[in-house]
């Protein structure tokens, strides 16, 4: 039995953190003594995990996508107005929302790569535009209503043989996660990481840097649209559904050990980071930590996570090198 799971570099720490949090949950909350509780947690975390996967593509290729939160709000508000409670409109509206996500990603990507504006600024601008345009269109507050069919994906569950009732959102998440992991092992996926690491080298070796970057933004937009469908389905129409999600998604990705600036980190770890974040909030809630301190704890944890990612590698290397040093270089005085 020499098979070892192939974990991408940097995945292990976040999995350890996640495991600790899950054990903590099991101790702290009676609801987490069976699979049902964890399934509920996964259902709740699914939209954020999907957002984190999208954000991962952009970050690993060296950019930022600050527009995903506004895109989620826009997706939900657009869907509610277009569906307006009519069941028959569900399918085409879902397609419209996905198409809208693609379009926003495409614009983000094109402005970044063709007009050479840093993605931080492009997506900040997009955030403002989406925020304003959506509510300009609906006259300030959401209108219309989502159909039952639309809400099934975020709210309902599917009867799966053996497993029983599994929420749709969990199934969608798993499909996306597997697809994303496979994609990152493909040539294109590896090239995407390479772009974040050193785009000049990719360019010199004939890689299509602009096209890869564009792809990352399009994927992020598409996944944000999917997350919008799940968020809207889970909790219904709301004007602030996407508020602050961009920072939460970036936090999740960083917690997953992905390097801001690109070139390092795995997509599974990014998703695990999102799940850890959600598990952390649930745990703090169960432990009765006041909501006010929640953000402080989150702040400390992300700083610790990046510091570990930046210094930890060096630390490990030093520890590994240490015996050799001892053999070769004797301390002069001790």
């Amino acid at each position: 039995m020499t098979w070892r799971p192939r974990l991408a570099e940097g995945t292990a720490p976040v999995l350890v953190v996640l495991l600790l949090l899950l054990v903590g949950l099991a101790i702290a909350g009676p609801a987490y003594d069976g699979p049902a509780g964890y399934l509920a947690l996964l259902k709740r975390a699914a939209p954020l995990m999907i957002l984190a996967i999208g954000q991962y593509f952009v970050i690993v290729s060296g950019g930022f996508d600050l527009s995903v939160g506004a895109l989620v709000t826009a997706g939900v508000v657009i869907a509610a107005r277009l569906i307006d409670g009519s069941e028959s409109a569900t399918t085409w509206v879902i397609l419209v929302v996905l198409g809208f996500g693609l379009l926003v990603g495409l614009v983000n990507g094109l402005v970044t790569t063709k007009l050479l504006v840093p993605s931080f600024i492009v997506t900040l601008g997009m955030l403002l535009v989406l925020d304003g345009a959506t509510f300009l269109w609906t006259g300030g507050a959401p209108r219309g209503a989502l159909s039952t069919g639309f809400r099934t994906f975020g709210r309902g569950a599917l009867d799966v043989p053996v497993l029983g009732e599994v929420p749709w959102s969990v199934l969608i998440l798993l499909a996306i996660l597997v697809a994303a992991a496979l994609f990152m092992r493909s040539g294109t996926g590896r090239a995407l990481v390479a772009v974040g690491d050193n785009d000049a080298a990719v360019r010199l070796s004939g890689g299509q840097v602009d096209r890869l970057r564009l792809l990352a933004f399009v994927l992020s937009g598409l996944l944000a649209a999917i997350a919008a469908i799940l968020f809207g389905g889970f909790a219904g129409v709301s004007a602030q559904v996407g508020e602050g999600l961009e920072f939460r998604a970036i936090t999740a990705v960083v917690l997953g050990g992905v390097l801001l600036g690109g070139g390092r980190g795995s997509v599974v770890a990014a998703a695990a980071g999102a799940l850890s974040l959600e598990a952390l909030f649930t745990l703090l809630n169960l432990l009765g930590v006041s909501g006010a301190l929640e953000s402080a704890v989150q702040g400390v944890i992300i700083i610790a996570a990046v510091a570990y990612a930046a210094l930890g590698g060096g630390l490990r290397q030093r520890l590994r090198l240490w015996p050799k040093h001892r053999n070769s270089v004797q301390p002069v005085s001790s």
Binding site: G29, A40, R44, F234, A235, Q240, V241, T282, G291
Partner: peptide, 21 residues
């Protein structure tokens, strides 16, 4: 006594947790 930030998703999660607990 919980704070929801006026966020529907958070509200729903909190209530679900309490029903379970």
């Amino acid at each position: 006594v919980e704070f929801t930030d006026g966020d529907a998703a958070k509200t729903k999660s909190i209530v679900s947790d309490y029903i379970q607990r």
